[in-house]
Design a protein around this nucleic acid. Structure first.
Length: 329
RNA sequence: AGGGCCGUAGCUCGAACUGGUAGAGCGGCGGACUCCAAAUCCGCGGGUUGGGGGUUCGAAUCCCUCCGGCCCUGCCA
């Protein structure tokens, strides 16, 4: 039986190159070796104040991008989180197993909540819902960026506690930390991760940006002192990030790129990188636009995905309910 | 549940006299410069003054109410 993998993206803000290289592209690569469950986690998107209409639009955008990027509904399960009620229900059960203290320690909660006037309870219990997402599918691996590792660990802790107290129920997942691609940095702030909700649009290359916009954004990308093109994330975070993007898109190694661009200057490199980004995104964008014109087809894929997901999740949930004392009545 | 303080641009606001045209700094955006950026210089936009109602010729300012935040006290478990 192939390993099962669960991962998801929140339908908030603009999908960008970091999401593609760091997540979706890696999932596509894993597609033939794992049973992939790929979710559009709209329940998580509600932890911050949101507009229902915008949320629905973002859900379709993420779905279209999953497909445009090459996730194949014949190989992977693609669905919207809120379409499978088991997520919410298991989250409640796990919320009674998780401890206040462990959630209060989550760095993402502390960072996101900091300075905010009000914070929803959902933002606090977010990791519990994420644990439910993962455990419902008996996922063995969870491909995530470095920043999500802590949440997967919490998921394991909660699952272990549940298993120890109520009997073996859940499979403990392993985080699969994605390599260099797991962390594409912001173009204007190369020491911080590229973000959908960054202050300036110059932080990211949106997957919908046209060639002119991409050109402008790469041109304004922050670089480092000195003119040599070499990969050194500590000393030269700016150019290293651009090299990472280049390497992930073309498959060339860092040393190949360093050799090729010796003595070439940042400006020259940026122009070539722009070409690479534009050309790599082009087919994806074409497919994306086509999918957007056919919402019925996307909807049908999501419906079938939700059906399969609900089948798997339902079994796990009923196992958990029994152990937890909820059925039979 | 009762009481106190508070809410102005993306952020910080001990800006806005006594009720009289809503401001600054930072950030952001654009340009110059630069191999490209950064720094620097030049320029630019940005607001339902938390929402709604009232008083007034006129409300950020006064009154009522709701929302949200911080604090004190009480009540229940």
């Amino acid at each position: 039986m192939p390993k099962r993998s669960f991962s998801g993206i929140q339908p908030t803000g603009n999908l960008h190159l970091g999401n593609y290289l760091g997540a979706i592209k890696q999932w596509v690569k894993l597609q033939d070796t794992v049973d992939g469950i790929y979710c559009i986690v709209d329940l998580h998107a509600c932890t911050a104040t949101h507009d229902p209409v915008v949320l629905r639009r973002s859900v379709s955008a993420v779905a279209a991008f999953y497909l445009a990027a090459g996730l194949d509904p014949a190989k992977s399960t693609i669905f919207v989180q809120s379409a499978v009620g088991a997520h919410s229900e298991l989250a409640w059960i796990l919320g009674c197993v998780a401890r206040f203290g462990e959630l209060a320690r989550m760095t993402q909660f502390k960072e996101k909540g900091e300075g905010r006037e009000s914070v929803s309870v959902g933002l606090f219990t977010y990791p519990v819902l994420m644990a439910a997402d993962i455990l419902l599918y008996d996922a063995n691996v969870v491909p995530v960026g470095e920043d999500q590792k802590q949440h997967v660990e919490l998921c394991r802790d909660v699952a272990e506690r549940f298993n120890a107290t109520f009997g073996d129920t859940f499979i403990l997942p392993e985080p699969l930390i994605l390599g260099t691609g797991g962390r594409i940095m912001g173009l204007d702030q190369p020491t911080k991760k590229m973000s959908k909700s960054a202050g300036s649009p110059n932080n990211y290359i949106a997957l919908e940006d046209d060639p002119d916009t991409i050109t402008r954004k790469i041109k304004t990308a922050v670089t480092d002192t000195g003119g040599q093109i070499c990969y050194a994330p500590e000393e030269k975070p700016g150019i290293s990030n651009l090299l990472t993007i280049y390497s992930l898109l073309t498959g060339e190694t860092m040393s190949d790129l360093e050799a090729r661009y010796t003595g070439k200057g940042y400006g020259f490199f940026k122009r070539e990188l722009t070409e690479v980004v534009v050309e790599n995104l082009r087919p994806l964008q074409t497919r994306y636009r086509a999918l957007k014109k056919d919402p019925a087809a996307v909807g049908e894929i999501l419906r079938q995905g939700a059906e399969r997901a609900a089948g798997i999740a339902g079994k796990t949930l009923s196992r958990a309910r029994k152990r937890f004392g909820m059925e039979p009545v």
